[in-house]
Design a protein around this nucleic acid. Structure first.
Lengths: 154, 154
DNA sequence: GAAAATTAATCAGTGTGCTGATTAATTGGA
DNA sequence: TCCAATTAATCAGCACACTGATTAATTTTC
């Protein structure tokens, strides 16, 4: 009888939070385009012509996952993939007109969904929510690459 | 040029948080047993003899996912699966001695990992972190089944 | 300028997570 | 009692997510 209370385990809470979000996304935003796919579209709106690896970096997806996400978006004709003439290893990515249109539409719906999702928190609590999660994520991310300290001492 | 700032999108933050957790789990807890697998072991320590569906309910995994997780734990001989003689549809689940041993070992390591993961937050902030995430998750969960209000009026 | 190191993308393999359809067993009602 | 509804589990199909190995192109180094 040495069971643990999972409600004090951040990993468990993170998974539950993502599930809750997935649910709401599906009902309020889109059943075709997923949240990571929207993140990729958004990155390419901000910086058209990025290569695949860099897009992955921007949205926090590894090389394999980003490849699949991009191939799906390509299949739906939401983006174009062109070999970089300067560097034959790279593919340069750019949204199609349809991709831009979808991004615009989902931006509106996503904003509405976020409001509903965060409605149980006051404005001050919402800020705190972002801040706390971001600090924990950043710190864990920092443990990954010990070669790049957050602040180097002289 | 209508790109959005993803750092104010709870879904994006939830995904990043889970990634960060996954990373730390792998290095500090186990490369074989995943966090959801540990959650299942933990549920069966708390309530031995549960059926598959109920375990899924306890840890927040749907019928398909819980089936695969359990089949993996069974393959590793961490739990036993026996037909319920009372109800031939159910399988009753119970940890093996090895399953108990693994749960004990991982409980210690998980506690250590959680400390490291939450280290960037003060004790008060950690409480807040749990509270905010839980409230958002619970509220979204509540939107799912409108037939079960949180508090019924008499 | 050719060999070595690096880098972008892909592939194979594993695991989580969801939905819709199906199968098998149990329960409830006419 | 028998037929209908419900329920537990499985299966097929899709999508995300990571690692390690491979391939192809570029850059570095000697």
């Amino acid at each position: 009888m040495a069971a643990v209370d999972l409600s004090t385990h951040p990993g468990h809470l993170a998974r539950r939070l993502q599930q809750a979000h997935y649910l709401l996304w599906n009902t309020m935003v889109s059943e075709e385009i997923t949240s990571p796919q929207f993140a990729v579209l958004n990155a390419l709106v901000a910086e058209p012509g990025l290569d695949q690896r860099t897009v992955g970096e921007r949205v926090g997806l590894d090389r394999s996952t980003i490849a699949e996400v991009i191939s799906r978006l390509g299949r739906r004709a939401l983006l174009d993939k062109v070999r970089d003439p300067q560097d034959g290893r790279r593919f340069l990515l750019r949204l199609t007109d349809e991709g831009l249109r979808v991004h615009r539409k989902l931006t509106v719906r996503t904003a509405r969904m976020n409001q509903v999702f965060l409605a149980p928190l006051s404005a001050a609590e919402q800020d705190l929510f972002f801040d706390l999660i971001q600090r924990v994520s950043d710190a864990a991310e920092g443990l990954r690459n010990p070669g790049e300290p957050v602040r180097a001492q002289p």
